[in-house]
Measured scan of single mutants.
Amino acid sequence: NQASVVANQLIPINTALTLAMMRSEVVTPVGIPAEDIPRLVSMQVNRAVPLGTTLMPDMVKGYA
């Protein structure tokens, strides 16, 4: 099963992502692949992401 990127904390809108904000977890539906975590660092979210939410490509500016 593919691990996805999950929010490790509440991430406010327009926040630049850091490693501490993300974790890898096997979830359904599948979100951004966990191997993309290094690429996500310093990218901004375009909405508030609650703790435990799977990051989807449309939630991260410049990812999709």
Rank of each mutant, 00 (worst) to 15 (best):
Ser24Pro: 06
Met56Phe: 09
Gly62Leu: 08
Met22Pro: 00
Glu25Trp: 07
Arg39Asp: 05
Leu10Glu: 13
Lys61Leu: 10
Ala48Val: 13
Ala20Asp: 09
Val6Glu: 02
Met59Gln: 11
Glu35Phe: 13
Asn8Lys: 09
Arg23Asp: 14
Asp58Glu: 10
Pro12Thr: 06
Val27Lys: 13
Ile13Tyr: 15
Asn1Asp: 07
Ala7Met: 05
Ile32Ser: 00
Leu51Asn: 09
Val5Ser: 03
Ala20Ile: 14
Met43Trp: 09
Tyr63Ser: 06
Pro57Phe: 09
Gly62Met: 07
Gln2Tyr: 11
Ala7Asn: 01
Lys61Tyr: 14
Leu10Cys: 04
Val41Gly: 03
Val6Ser: 03
Ile11His: 00
Ser24Glu: 13
Thr54Met: 04
Met59Asn: 05
Gln44Ile: 13
Lys61Ile: 11
Arg39Ala: 14
Asp58Cys: 03
Ala64Met: 11
Asn1Ala: 11
Tyr63Leu: 06
Thr18Cys: 03
Val49Gly: 01
Ala20Leu: 12
Leu55Lys: 00
Asn46Asp: 13
Gln9Phe: 04
Tyr63Ile: 05
Asn8Cys: 03
Glu25Lys: 11
Leu10His: 11
Glu35Ala: 15
Ile13Asp: 12
Ala7Gln: 00
Met21Val: 05
Asn8Gln: 08
Gly62His: 13
Val6Ile: 13
Arg47Asn: 13
Ile11Asp: 01
Val45Lys: 00
Val45Arg: 00
Thr54Lys: 04
Thr28Phe: 07
Thr28Cys: 02
Met56Pro: 02
Gly52Met: 07
Glu25Asp: 15
Ala64Gln: 15
Met59Asp: 10
Pro12Asn: 11
Leu55Val: 06
Met43Cys: 03
Gly31Leu: 00
Leu51Gly: 13
Ala16Pro: 10
Asp36Trp: 07
Gln9Ala: 15
Leu40Arg: 00
Leu10Tyr: 12
Pro33Trp: 12
Gln44His: 11
Pro33Thr: 14
Pro57Glu: 08
Thr18Gln: 09
Gln9Val: 05
Leu40Lys: 01
Pro29Ala: 05
Arg23Glu: 06
Asn14Leu: 14
Ala48Glu: 14
Ile11Ala: 01
Ser4Ala: 03
Ile11Asn: 00
Arg47Tyr: 14
Val27Tyr: 02
Leu10Ile: 14
Met43Ala: 05
Ser4Leu: 01
Asn14Thr: 05
Leu55Tyr: 00
Val30Thr: 12
Val60Gly: 00
Pro50Tyr: 07
Ser42Cys: 04
Val6Lys: 05
Gly52Gln: 04
Pro33Phe: 07
Pro12Val: 11
Val5Gln: 00
Arg47Ser: 10
Ala64Val: 12
Tyr63Thr: 05
Arg47Trp: 07
Gln44Met: 13
Thr53Trp: 14
Ala64Ile: 15
Val49Glu: 02
Asn14Gln: 06
Val49Met: 12
Leu55Asn: 00
Arg39Tyr: 10
Thr28Asn: 14
Asp36Cys: 04
Pro12Asp: 06
Ala48Asp: 09
Leu19His: 12
Ile13Ala: 08
Met56Gln: 15
Val5Tyr: 01
Glu25Ala: 10
Glu25Met: 15
Val5His: 00
Asn46Arg: 13
Gly62Arg: 08
Ala34His: 10
Arg39Met: 15
Gly31Val: 02
Ala34Val: 10
Ala20Cys: 03
Pro12Tyr: 08
Ile13Thr: 10
Pro12Ala: 11
Met43Ile: 04
Leu40Glu: 01
Glu25His: 11
Val26Asp: 08
Arg23Thr: 09
Pro33His: 15
Val6Phe: 02
Leu40Gln: 00
Ala48Ile: 09
Gly62Thr: 14
Ala64Leu: 12
Gln2Met: 12
Gly31Asp: 00
Val41Ile: 15
Val5Arg: 00
Gln2Phe: 12
Met59Trp: 14
Pro57Leu: 04
Arg47Ala: 13
Met22Asn: 01
Ala48Trp: 09
Lys61Cys: 03
Ala7Thr: 12
